[in-house]
């Protein structure tokens, strides 16, 4: 089942796109996608953590004893998450205010740990980078798409512009938590309809 580097990358974009196919990492998917900007910001932060932790885990995979691997992964991931948090505070403070508690929660995002355990720990550096990048980009795209749908329907705005004109009454249900579940479910359904053809 040897795949090329390109395949490792592209599988994260469709075939195994994290929130929709693997149904992993749903906490931020549901929590922060009230707007597309938030979704993409969160996705990029996760991508950074994912790629960095994949790199480090892959490099260190020969040295990390199997018995304490999860502890090691968590230390590595937590380090990068804190790095992201500090950098975001320093350079993108408004985004940090919006994403708030969800940034530290990347540590327990099972997508990141899942890729470290399932992929990077068993593979060489280059495929691991490709895998992390692919998964991250796929994650970002999903969050962005979900955020866009919820933003457009829930507030009638898209990136600060009004989509349907002033007479549109925002379907506020969509920006609330239950709306996230319904929206995610409908998008999953759409993916399956397209995918099964």
């Amino acid at each position: 089942m040897a795949k090329t580097v390109t395949q490792e990358f592209t599988k994260g974009l469709w075939e195994e796109i994290a929130p929709f196919r693997l149904v992993l990492g749903l906490c931020p998917v549901l929590g922060v996608t009230t707007t597309m900007e938030n979704g993409i910001g969160m996705g990029l932060a996760t991508t950074f953590v994912l790629v960095c932790s994949n790199i480090l885990v892959s490099i260190l995979r020969k040295f990390i004893p199997a018995k304490v691997r999860i502890a090691c992964f968590i230390v590595i991931i937590a380090t990068f998450v804190t790095v992201v948090e500090l950098l975001m505070q320093a350079f993108a403070y408004p985004l940090f205010l919006k994403l708030g508690v969800f940034i530290p929660l990347i540590v327990v995002n099972c997508l990141v740990l899942g890729r470290a355990e399932a992929f990077a720990f068993k593979n060489k550096l280059i495929p691991s980078v490709a895998d992390g990048l692919g998964m991250g980009v796929g994650f970002t795209l999903s969050l962005g798409a979900l955020g866009a749908v919820r933003e457009i329907l829930g507030t009638g705005m898209f990136l600060g512009m009004s989509v349907f004109g002033a007479s549109y009454e925002p379907f506020a249900f969509m920006v609330q938590a239950p709306g996230a579940f319904v929206c995610l479910g409908l998008m999953l359904c759409g993916m399956n309809i397209i995918g099964s053809k």
Binding site: E169, F171, A172, F173, Q176, P178, V182
Partner: peptide
Amino acid sequence: GMSILMVAW
């Protein structure tokens, strides 16, 4: 239907 609409509008 009713409960979702009541939340939204």
